[in-house]
């Protein structure tokens, strides 16, 4: 559980480049060059994780998405 929390935090910080405490659509688009996902796919990831659709992805929302991913997968 701690490992998952640590990973969630690491990933959130990778996206939240300026350490704002939330991730914007622009932050997500910036990952385009770093991750093998198209801008459309990154947009879809953002929309899926941003459960209240306010345009800001909080750590809680991000964490929820990551938890559901982990629970549906075999974690290495």
């Amino acid at each position: 559980q701690n490992t998952i929390q640590e990973k969630t935090h690491e990933f959130f910080q990778m996206c939240d480049i300026k350490d704002k405490g939330y991730i914007t659509r622009q932050d997500m688009q910036r990952l385009n060059g770093e991750l093998p996902l198209s801008p459309e796919e990154l947009e879809r990831v953002f929309d899926t994780l941003d459960s209240d659709a306010n345009g800001y992805l909080t750590f809680e929302e991000f964490s929820l998405g990551f938890s559901s991913f982990v629970s549906g997968q075999t974690f290495p």
Binding site: K7, M14, L35, G72, P76
Partner: peptide, 29 residues
């Protein structure tokens, strides 16, 4: 059900996203 299909597609793209983050962090594909 189109909603279920969209949900499955979103799960797929989320899995790709988190898998990519994991690979990036560990340095393995």
């Amino acid at each position: 059900d189109p909603n279920m299909k969209a949900g499955a597609a979103n799960e797929g793209v989320l899995a790709s996203f988190f898998n990519s983050l994991l690979s990036k962090k560990t340095g393995s594909p």
